[in-house]
Write a protein that binds this DNA or RNA. Structure first.
Length: 216
DNA sequence: TTCCAGGCAATAC
DNA sequence: GTATTGCATGGA
């Protein structure tokens, strides 16, 4: 099956996902909206908080920060450390994440334009997936995000085999699909939605009735 | 109780 | 360059 067909099948089955959730809401018309600087910051902070953590846990932390008025660059950097820690705690890895948040925020404060991927990757705490999440959802750059779900799902479909690294998988998708951010946003969100149901527990994909002909 | 979540950096080989 | 390990909360 071609990659574009995988996307079409997911879209037909689940519909538009409207990522990234902002202020506890998904935005189906996110594609058209011009994001404010505050919204760009919130998406970026959320991308860091959700590293290897469920969105539910990350979102609790995000709401804590919002409640304490810490969802602005200035206030995060001036925040009392104990307060910041308590806000971030539900997201897990809080000792690391409060520093990751500060590192990104210092970078963000000086930013006058959309960041480059390389610049983001230099920040301690921003790896490939987080950088691509920020670029794709906050800055609407056509970067495909590769995550653990994507690797499992594509492996199961036979799209990738064995030891593909992040950049190879990313390139594969970006070269085979129209380079539009709207498409990459929806595709990634759809993969996560589908994979949550069928690729969370080993053996991965055993219940994947949508893509396994044995179930049809 | 065990397993896993929208990873990353440091370290070891 | 690839493999392993520590980081941590909360839900299923």
């Amino acid at each position: 099956m071609k990659i574009i067909q995988v996307y079409q099948k997911l879209l037909k089955n689940y519909g538009l996902q409207g990522w990234w959730p902002l202020n506890n809401k998904y935005c189906p018309d996110n594609h058209k909206l011009e994001l404010s600087k505050g919204e760009i910051f919130e998406i970026s902070i959320g991308a860091i908080l959700t590293q290897n953590t469920s969105w539910n846990n990350a979102n609790t932390a995000l709401n804590n920060l919002r409640e304490k008025k810490l969802l602005t660059p200035k206030n995060i950097l001036n925040a009392d450390n104990e307060l910041l820690t308590n806000c971030v705690k539900p997201a897990g890895y809080y000792n690391q994440k409060i520093n990751y948040l500060k590192n990104f925020t210092k970078f963000f404060q000086k930013l006058k334009r959309a960041p480059g991927r390389m610049e983001l990757l230099k920040i301690k705490g921003i790896g490939k997936e987080t950088a691509d999440s920020i670029l794709l959802y906050a800055y609407k750059q056509p970067n495909f995000i590769v995550d653990a779900y994507t690797k499992r799902f594509f492996t199961r479909l036979g799209i990738i085999k064995g030891k593909n690294n992040y950049e190879e998988i990313k390139k594969l998708v970006e070269e085979k699909l129209p380079r539009k951010y709207e498409l990459f946003q929806e595709f990634h969100a759809l993969i996560v939605e589908h994979a949550k149901k069928h690729y969370s527990r080993k053996p991965y994909g055993l219940t994947d009735s949508l893509f396994n002909p044995d179930f049809q």
